[in-house]
Design a protein around this nucleic acid. Structure first.
Lengths: 337, 337
DNA sequence: TCCCCCTGCTAAAAGCATTTAGCAAATGCA
DNA sequence: TGCATTTGCTAAATGCTTTTAGCAGGGGGA
């Protein structure tokens, strides 16, 4: 507890050199003219004392903290968005940075506090992460460090990392086609406002565009579009139940895995088998998807990749937004052709 | 970008006082003899310049960084363990601290790096969080700051925060009793090694003890104990299916919600209704539990409370471990008596 | 009047690493 | 030998805040 930290001065003293020399050697400066002997002595001294630089002192001098702040509205309400953190953490570690995480609940006051707390600590960059992709509120403070928007956008900060929803939407439809299904497809989770990008998420609007484009390209049309606000299992269950009563579909294209989960429940209850009687495709690759029987084929949200990429863009001071590929995760909810 | 930070010296200059005065006033020192006038001037100057102290410089001088490190093996593999982070984040925010999060994947080399990175930044405390409660590997480095173990234990650091599994185990059985069920109960997810505390988690061993104690107290005995290593839905499904074929239980006590999920699938397939034909109780309060139909009654893992409490113990330099109550979450998988 | 204490404030050091400017000795070249 | 370079290294300044030690002036008591 009381053992004093070992400082650069201690190392220098033990090596019989100046702190200047020690500093230059330990930070690995290229063009210094210090002798090989000096290098050896300093390294030996540092090792024997177990020297570790005081990052605060270094940050004070260099204005680089090797710290980045990850400010999100909700870390893990969707357990799933935590993939964003995991990825970012991995990216930070790879770049020998360390990550401060702050949660704001989407409340402006807490957002301000979070940004201030981060800036006070001289972070090298800010990542604003949103649980649901949308226009993110960024407090109107002077921010003088690189900033990237993760799973969201901001008029003020152009560099963002988003899933490539358009392509993802296309893929879902292509999957259906490849399974030999070209009609009797029901869209589950439609919502006009969302589709228009008015609410919740512009990126989901792009998902719709991709779906519509692919449908058109294949000259397909939905048998029905079942609309609801929240995309929770309960809604998926109810809508699917009603649909089955009206007319049995050949396939259900669900806007997320939780809806698909509800659809499975309704199908099971009606004695319909997946995929023989009704095929299902979905979006997200929620952990759920692997629990279902049969496993759910879904277009994954590449959260972990996105998080990692956000850090990379941040540290390379990129200036353009980036779209991350949505992987197709094939499990068993589509018939093999 | 180039706008220089405003420093304490700037504030002092504008206020027409020394930096000493400004510092004392802004940090709210109690026994200073500075005039009310001086206070007013300094505060006015600070406000008008938008002064924010440089935390690195302050940390350098005071050795207090208002930073705590959250070092975990896996943040969110179980999406669920991320509740630990959420709680800790909330606790840190309440205490005006900020949290560094580091992930180690349980690899010793990364653990060492993580601890060093944290210590280099003069964190005020360390939280070692484990995804699964167990004896946690803590690298053998000199650690001279308060440390608490979260959802795990360590011989070296006695203060830990764990769920009260013994009581939780009892509660599960009591729930069955209260629903009028006293026989025909199958235990799903037993495992002799785990029960003996030899592997994975000592706290799960305590859960078993609680279950056994309550069973004995109620003079009940399991109809069968179905054992498996991994507690995933697939295993729950298989074991339940076999059990149904052999003899239909009145209730299934599942060691976690994922097993219960599998049990539901097998039950549905066999045309058995929950809870009329077969009741189910479980542990964890995974998000899954609310998706099932009917909702799963389960003994919740209080991750968020635990995270918050860990920070509180850390900052109060507590010296004793603490058990956090496991809430019973009643949904619809038990019959109303 | 002299001494002491209180009030209100400040100069300077400390905390630790990086960096600029520059010194002394050795070497190279003519 | 004499001058310019190069080599190998260091003193001191810098970044910003906190804290210690202490100064100047006014008032009170003896």
């Amino acid at each position: 507890m009381t053992k004093k930290r070992v400082t650069l001065a201690d190392v220098a003293r033990l090596a019989g050199l100046s702190t200047t020399a020690a500093s230059m050697i330990l930070t690995g400066r290229p063009d210094t003219r210090l002798s090989a002997d000096a290098h050896a002595k300093v390294h030996a001294a540092a090792a024997s004392l177990g020297y570790r630089p005081n990052v605060a002192a270094r940050a004070l001098r260099t204005d680089k903290s090797r710290l980045i702040a990850f400010i999100s509205d909700y870390v893990a309400t969707t357990r799933f968005a935590s993939g964003l953190i995991r990825g970012a953490l991995a990216g930070a570690e790879a770049a020998k940075h360390v990550m401060l995480v702050l949660e704001t609940g989407g409340e402006p006051a807490r957002e301000i506090q979070a940004v201030e707390a981060a800036l006070d600590r001289q972070v090298d960059g800010l990542i604003f992460a949103a649980m649901r992709a949308r226009e993110v509120f960024v407090p109107d403070l002077p921010i003088n460090v690189p900033t990237v928007m993760l799973n969201g956008t901001s008029a003020r900060f152009p560099v963002s990392v988003l899933p490539d929803e358009y392509r993802g939407g296309q893929r879902a439809v292509e999957l259906l086609r490849a399974a030999g299904i070209s009609d009797g497809v029901v869209l589950l989770g439609h919502n006009a406002e969302v589709e228009a990008g008015l609410f919740r998420s512009e990126t989901i609007a792009r998902r719709f565009e991709g779906i519509r484009a692919a449908m058109q390209a294949a000259d397909m049309r939905f048998m029905a579009e079942l609309s609801c606000w929240n995309w929770e299992p309960g809604h998926g269950y109810e809508l699917t139940r009603k649909q089955i009563k009206a007319a049995r579909p050949r396939a259900i294209l669900c806007l997320n895995d939780r809806l698909a989960f509800g659809a499975y429940q309704a199908l099971a209850e009606a004695g319909l088998r997946v995929p023989e009687d009704v095929a299902v495709v979905s979006f997200d690759n929620d952990e759920l998807a692997s629990y279902l029987r049969p496993g759910l084929t879904t277009i994954g949200l590449p959260h972990e990749d996105m998080g990692r990429r956000a850090v990379e863009l941040l540290l390379s001071e990129a200036s353009a937004p980036e779209l991350i590929e949505m992987p197709v995760i094939e499990r068993g909810s589509l018939p093999r052709p």
